[in-house]
Amino acid sequence: MTVARSLFIPLVLFLVIAFLIGPFLIIVAASFSAGETLAFPPQGFSLRWIAKVFTVESFRASFGMSMFLAIGGTLAALVLGIPASYALSRYKLPGAEIVRTIVSAPIIVPGIIVGLALLRYIVVPFQIGITLALFMAHTALILPYAVRVVSASLENLRSDIEEAAVLLGSSRLGAFFRVVMPNIRGGILSAFILGFVTSFNQVPVSLFLSGPGVRTMPIDMIAYMEIVFDPSVAALSSLLALMSIGIVFAAERFLGFSRYV
């Protein structure tokens, strides 16, 4: 039994991790290929596809768009979500369950429906720009994560310290910024990272929300792949993954990100 168990654990882990990480490693390897198409093992070694990523103009534009959506959308979701989480965890809120359901609904409904609904009933009738629509959609999409993660860290924080601060003469807002905020900083940052990654990799919501000159990075990658099947998309994927991993690693290193998620 012990022998079987000592074999079982590494074997299971090896297989599962190979299955989960393997495809990514193949993409990374393919980024350094010298050949014309995506292939594994890669044909020769070159940096030409990595270099090409930086010369494709639409990649630069869509990267900027996705960055804007991921950062702006997450900030907006936090601006909306932190007060809401605070109200949910510290106040006797009338209809708390309804509020909780509404703000977390976007996570349950398939993204492709959200995108289509926005296009049909917000973008077209109100004639708002695609960029604004994308911004609103991504904010709505990140909101559930923001509320969930921030609520979790508020739950872990005892509420009597801010009550004490208020009793000692601090305003409610002052108590929030001086006592609560410093203590849930990690939670907020985790929510930010989670929101950023979710938004940046989001495909279905953005699928219908593209317009002339406006495309998110993943949609642009799909569009590019529809035209050219060269390894530059692999190279781009590797670079983006490196960026996400870097951010998460730094967050884990300095803040213990995984405690909050």
Binding site: L75, A76, V79, P83, G129, T131, L132, F135, M136, L173
Partner: peptide
């Protein structure tokens, strides 16, 4: 004030998008 400020911040980000 805080609510007003966060509202303004939101409007600004949206404005930038436009």
């Amino acid at each position: 004030k805080a609510i007003l400020a966060s509202g303004t911040a939101l409007m600004l980000t949206m404005g930038a998008a436009q």
